[in-house]
């Protein structure tokens, strides 16, 4: 029983860590967005505010996939272990 619970907790933590690999994607995406924005400001310094606003918007949209991964990781860390352990104990008590 303790071993089963330990495996559940460990796998949840591993899964959360692996879900956050998705953080690579938004990182690269936002980096390229900011790089292009810097280039644009360097070329046309007068439209700095418009470029900055658009860049922030684009970054926010690019972040979305990373945030999905974050939400899944948080669910795996804080919600899933309790659920799984409850299911385990229920089935164990049903089995006797």
């Amino acid at each position: 029983m303790e071993l089963a619970i330990g495996i559940i907790l460990g796998c949840c933590a591993l899964g959360a860590g692996m879900a956050m690999i998705a953080g690579i994607g938004p990182g690269i995406g936002e980096g390229s967005a900011v790089a292009s924005a810097c280039e644009a400001i360097g070329r046309q310094p007068e439209c700095r505010s418009a470029v900055t606003t658009t860049m922030l918007m684009g970054c926010a949209v690019a972040e979305t996939t990373g945030l999905y991964a974050l939400v899944i990781a948080i669910l795996l860390l804080f919600v899933a272990p309790g659920r799984f352990v409850n299911i385990l104990t229920e089935t164990m008590s049903n089995l006797g």
Binding site: L67, V71, I74
Partner: peptide
Amino acid sequence: VSMAFRHYGNVLSGSV
């Protein structure tokens, strides 16, 4: 869904 997750994820990740 993405709007809600974006706002909630950013604030929650900051506090975590």
